[in-house]
Structures are given as C-alpha cells and as structure tokens.
Amino acid sequence: MDHSGISVLFEGTNFQRLLGGLWVTVRIAAVALIIGLILGIMLGVLRTFKNRPLRVILRLYLEFFRIVPTVVLLFLFYYILPRQMNFNLPGDQLATLVFALWVAAEMSDIVRGALISVPQHQKESGKAIGLNRYQLYRYVLIPQAISLEIPATINLATRVIKTTSLLMLISVMDVINIGQQIIEANNHSHPTGVFWVYGLIFLFYFLIDYPLSWWAKRLEKKRLERANG
C-alpha cells in the first residue's frame, strides 16, 4: 500500500499542527489548574470556618460544578452567557475560565477534607503559643493539609487534562480538534489515517497523564510509610 495510514502524520505540517494542538490543550489545562488550585485552597479554608451563610454558598458552588456535566458547563458559558449577559471571551480563554472554576470547586472539597482531618490537638497547641487564626492556618494547618491532599490534587489534574478533550465542542483548536481536521482532510487518500491520528493522540495523553498518576501513587505510598514510621 503506497498510502499507508501512518504517513498522514508526517505529511505537510500535520505533525507540527498536532503538537500545536497539544500545546493549546496543555496550556489551558495548566493555567486552569494554577488558578483553580489557588482559588480552591482559599475556598477550602473558608469552608472550614463556622460562618453558616458562607458555608452554604460555597457548598452550593461546589455542588453546582460537581453535578453539572463539564460539557454542559462549557455550552452554558459559550452559548448562553454571551447572549444573555453580553459576556464575550475567545473560546480558549472561556474554556480556561470554566475549567478553573471547576478545579476550584473540586479543590475546595479536597482542601476542606484535609484541613478537618488535621488532629484537633494540633490546632490547640498552635493556639496555646498565641497563634491567631491566620497564623494557625498559614504555619500549622495548611502545610499539614497539603501533604495529605497532594495525591488527590494530582488525580484531579489528570482528570482535568483528560477532560480538555471536550474543548473541540466549543471550537477550541485543541489536539483532538486538529486531529479531527487532519482525518477529514485526508480521509480519501488515507482511509486508515484515523487510527494513526487517534493513536498518536492517545499516546500524547498517556505520556502526560501516566507520569502524574505514577507520581501521585508514589507520594501516597511515601506518606503512608512516614505516617506509620
């Protein structure tokens, strides 16, 4: 066969275009994770406070982003917000915003869970040396919570990276969308190209996500060893 499917990957600028798409994917995921993690830590801390209205509002925020499917969130922000509220952003920035808000919601729950599992005694011995609430969180509770929550956070990151595959639905030129374009353009000359293009995309996602999930497992194992030692 002179038109083997694999050659579609290297024809013209196809490979560079796929890498460019991958970069869009990674950039959106990375920026969303950075913003989302910072916001999520703050919201998680607020959720441990006794203030009831605040807790209810943050809980509703979490449940909204957890229950509504990500694709619906993307459509909501992409189609409805611009029309109803005259809120216009390019697709990739909008996707970053949606993912950041989603990460913040999930992260707030992870952080809250970790904070309340720091033993009560730690809080008391912090208070006993005169720490105020800010100092208690800053030097005692948050550092201990972070070591508890890192594996869950990394798992969240792998989920976010995987879910960026939905971006093509709001016309962001991510790796999947570009792959789809290449397949359609070459469908006639390379009928088996679809396997190679998706095969490569699979490899891309695997190469990004697998080390993360390996790292999460390793950290968790180390933490348990330390906790038992």
Partner: peptide
C-alpha cells in the same frame, strides 16, 4: 496565651516543622 504557657499530654509538636522551627514559631511570628 503568650503569658500562660501550656504543655499537653500528647506533646503535639508540629510535624511539618523542625524542632527549631517549632520553638521559633511563637517568638518570631507571634
């Protein structure tokens, strides 16, 4: 609490800090 020190049954040092940083937290930050 800076004038009334307290020591507990379960020690409760902060595991994320070294011995020195455990001791210095109150004097330097508070």
């Amino acid at each position: 609490r800076q004038k009334i020190g307290m020591v507990f049954q379960s020690y409760d040092l902060f595991p994320n800090l070294t011995v020195m940083d455990n001791i210095l937290l109150g004097p330097t930050k508070v």
